[in-house]
Every structure is written in C-alpha cells, then in structure tokens.
C-alpha cells in the first residue's frame, strides 16, 4: 500500500474486527443506535447538539492546519474524533475550549456555537469557558503536588469549595477512589501511568464542567488501564458531554455514540490541511461509511 497518509492503527487493530466490535458495541448506545437506524434518519437518537461547529478553520502561522469543519456534537453523549495523525484532530478539539488561544501564532476562524452562542467570539472569557469545558490530555500531566491537592486545584480556581466529599466524589467517578483513598497525601507522581490519567480525569470532573474534552487519553497507557478509562468514560457520559480524540478505531467503536472522521487534503508540503470527511453515528461510520476515504481508512486501505 503506497500511502502518504499513514493510518494511526496499531497492528492488532484488524479492520474486520472493528466492524465486528462496532456491531457488538456497548449494549446501551449501540442498541439505541441500531434501533434508530432501523426506524429512520440517523440523527435524532443522538439528542440535541451542545456544540455546533460552523466552517471552523485553524492556522498555525502560515500553515493551515484545519479547514471547513462543520458538525454538531450532541449533548450528554460521547463523540469520537478519528483520523490519521496530523489531520487536525487535536487542533479541532483544542478549539472547543479555546486552548489554541495559548499557542502563539494560532488563528481560529468560523463559529463554534455552544448552547447557541459563539464561543470563539472575542468577548467571551476563555478562562471561564475552560472551567465549563474541561480537558484531559494525551500524556498524564498531574501537578507535582499530592493527589488531594491535584483534585482541589481546579476546584479552587473555579471557586468551588474543596470539601472532602467533593474530592471523594470526583475520585469515585474517575474509578480511582479505592486505589488511593488511603494515600491522598501522597505525591501524584507516585501513581502509575493509568492511575495518573484517571487522576487527571478526576481533576477535570471535580470542576463540574459541562463538557470534558479528551485528547487520546489512553494512547500512553497499557490495555488494562485503557479499559478502565473506557469504562469510566461510559459511566460519566450520562452527566457530561464527552469529545474524545482517539487513534484507536476499536476504542472509538466501543465507546462512542457519534464518530467524526477527519483526514488530510492536499499532497504537497505546505498545502496539506485537515478536513472533516464524514460524521455520523458510530454504526453508520463503521458499518456503512458514505465517504470512500472513511471506508479506506477503517478497512485499512488508505490512498
């Protein structure tokens, strides 16, 4: 296969298995998606959108990283963003809570409506916004403080009183409580990688945001830690809107309600730019992709 865009799949991500696991995905969502697909148009069962992206584009200096992304992100569901590396998944995700404001030279155009309001508008307060739209990153990044202080940090900056109950609740939600309840004063660095990532999720949950963005939250973790985090994502999806970037298609199939597939357009160096190829329910994308590029990607044939 001659490609200029490598699929981000690991060797064991056999394309056929993906379709199988999509078919046998989580009982709750997949069944709902199946019924929805049988009953009529695909969209309604996803619920009303909390984010509406309209022609979103991002430039890093003179390089256009993402162009013309338009999609809706349903509330209280899990949306996965998949695609080859470098196609602008992280860039798109980071627009949703204005993290790109912090990158010197980054420019964002288009609209992102959040509850009907454009959050990219220059008079929106990005600090306040990030308190409502939390983020978890690829590499676990606990602060060099105790486990408890890590949780309380976000609460304090958002004016939430850091009570013991709230700390406990966040750790319970992040499925970490049983492992750390006796060592809350320990350094966060003493935790394992998977535990650190769950701590980062707990830290985000503790702020009580409306949305949690996750950028490849499992890519630095082993399979068991990954499963633990997938379980916890499914558990908290009823309370939060989750937008998850992943390069693991099986993971997208296992956890997501909606899938957005991004890819790179333009071959020459300098004109390569990320675009949204297709968005639909997990079932649509994995069993009946409309865009040939999506199909090529999920079946492992790219180019």
């Amino acid at each position: 296969m001659t490609t200029n865009v490598e699929p981000d799949t690991t060797a064991d991500d056999a394309p056929i298995e993906i379709q199988l696991s999509a078919g046998a995905a989580t009982p709750t969502h997949a069944v709902a998606a199946g019924q929805g697909a049988a009953a009529g148009p695909a969209q309604p069962e996803l619920g009303p959108p909390i984010f509406q992206l309209r022609d979103l584009g991002v430039w890093y200096g003179k390089n256009e990283a993402v162009r013309g992304v338009s999609m809706d992100i349903p509330k209280n569901a899990i949306t996965a963003i998949i695609g080859p590396s470098g196609c602008g998944k992280s860039t798109t995700l980071r627009c949703l809570n204005r993290m790109n404001d912090l990158v010197p030279g980054a420019r964002v155009n288009g609209e992102i409506l959040f509850g009907g309001e454009d959050l990219l508008s220059s008079d929106v307060d990005p600090v306040d916004l990030r308190g409502r739209i939390g983020m978890v990153f690829q590499k676990p990044s606990p602060f060099p403080k105790s486990i408890k202080d890590n949780i309380e940090f976000g609460m304090k900056v958002n004016g939430i009183k850091p009570t013991a109950e709230r700390v406990e609740q966040a750790l319970v939600d992040a499925a970490l409580w049983d492992e750390v309840k006796d060592r809350l004063k320990d350094e966060a660095f003493s935790l394992s990688g998977g535990q650190q990532q769950r701590l980062c999720i707990a830290r985000a949950i503790a702020v009580e945001p409306e949305v949690i963005l996750m950028d490849e939250p499992c890519s630095a973790l082993d399979p068991i830690a990954t499963l633990a985090i997938e379980d916890l994502m499914k558990n908290i999806a009823e309370r939060f809107t989750l937008v998850v970037v992943t390069h693991n298609m099986q993971q997208a199939a296992r956890i997501s309600d909606q899938v957005a597939f991004m890819t790179v357009e333009g071959k020459a160096e300098g004109e390569r730019c990320g675009v949204l190829a297709e968005v639909g329910t997990a079932r649509e994308i994995f069993s009946a992709p409309k865009d040939p590029r999506t199909e090529a990607y999920i079946t492992g044939r790219v180019g």
Partner: peptide, 10 residues
Amino acid sequence: MREGAFGLGA
C-alpha cells in the same frame, strides 16, 4: 502541566 492547569480554567 501548564496546559493541564489552563484546561481547568486557571
């Protein structure tokens, strides 16, 4: 680490 803190609204 910085991004982690900014992402929490710091």
